[in-house]
Simulated scan of single mutants.
Amino acid sequence: MDWDDLRIFLAVARDESLSAAGRRLGMDASTVGRRVARLESAIGSALFLKTPQGYALTEAGERLVAPAETAEQAAQAAAEATRREAGISGQLRIGAPDGCANYLLPQIASAMCAAHPGLEIQIVAQPRVANLSRREADMAISVSAPDTGRLVVQRLSEYRLHLAGQADYLAGHPPIRSLDDLKRHAMIGYIPDMIFDRELDYLSATGVASAVISSNSVSVQMQAIRAGAGLGIVHGFAMPFVPELRPVLGDQIALTRNFWLLRHADDRASRRLNLLAEELAGRIRQEIQRLEALLWQGA
């Protein structure tokens, strides 16, 4: 049995689509289909059932997943054994909520790639947690620690959020001395039914029931606040990138959250991923501390 065919099988099983698996593997969908058919012929059983929702595993396909993943881990271990001890190379895909993906990971990825010239980092900004079982990413950053799934969960760092407004907006609207004053101001926040984690429900801390402008994206919310559309809760580490913003009611609204690093349990034995996770965690902590310090230096 060809390992490369098993690799293609796993991609289809995880993506439930020939075209999506092809994009992951860098080949066209028809080639993926032919390789799956070749594997099915070699095994003597159908591995997938085509449905309106995509490609679903048959019973034979379900039985093949575990040995195929064992072969995948062995192939990864063999590849790691041939790499230079002095450096870390290859591709690393990180899934992250867009606040982290926009304001932390670009400079962290730049530093890591400079330190490891053979490293290629892909940042997937998502309004949800990346599905590691389907291998959407090698590791994921989350705002809460999941209690289900075959995952290795590591606390990364605490971070702070602040109510903020654009300087001109604040100068041109009624003064804000208490939470009650917020009722006279427009608020920016998340779309309520698109909050994928309870830790993102920031608006309740302000006592204001609804937002005038809402988005499932932290970056869109930030740009709306920057445009003077109203007040909103923003990451402290993001505020140095938008110097027009000013903290509001800092003594009355103080939110603290945590970032968590998630990895698939099967990757625990990967020396390469262990080293990358350790470096990523350290750099995230340092960058949050650096940016939050800059915020108060400029206050």
Rank of each mutant, 00 (worst) to 15 (best):
Q122E: 05
I176S: 00
R23P: 00
T148P: 00
W3E: 15
L25E: 01
G33Y: 12
R135C: 02
P117T: 13
P97C: 03
D138A: 13
L156V: 15
E59Q: 13
G149F: 04
E279Q: 15
Q107P: 03
D180V: 15
A21Y: 02
W260K: 10
Q223T: 04
N102I: 02
D28N: 13
T256G: 05
A211E: 07
Y190V: 06
R268V: 10
A77D: 07
L39C: 06
Q286D: 13
E136W: 07
R14L: 05
A277P: 01
L6S: 08
E136N: 06
K50H: 12
Y159N: 05
I108M: 09
E199I: 02
A42R: 10
P192N: 02
A171K: 05
M187W: 09
T70K: 04
R93M: 14
A205P: 09
V12E: 01
E59M: 12
E287H: 13
E120S: 01
H173L: 11
V218S: 12
I288L: 02
P240Q: 04
I213S: 01
A205L: 13
T58F: 12
A46G: 14
Q126G: 08
G44Y: 04
A101P: 05
R246F: 00
A269T: 03
E199V: 04
A265F: 04
N258S: 10
R35N: 12
L231W: 09
T58I: 08
T70C: 02
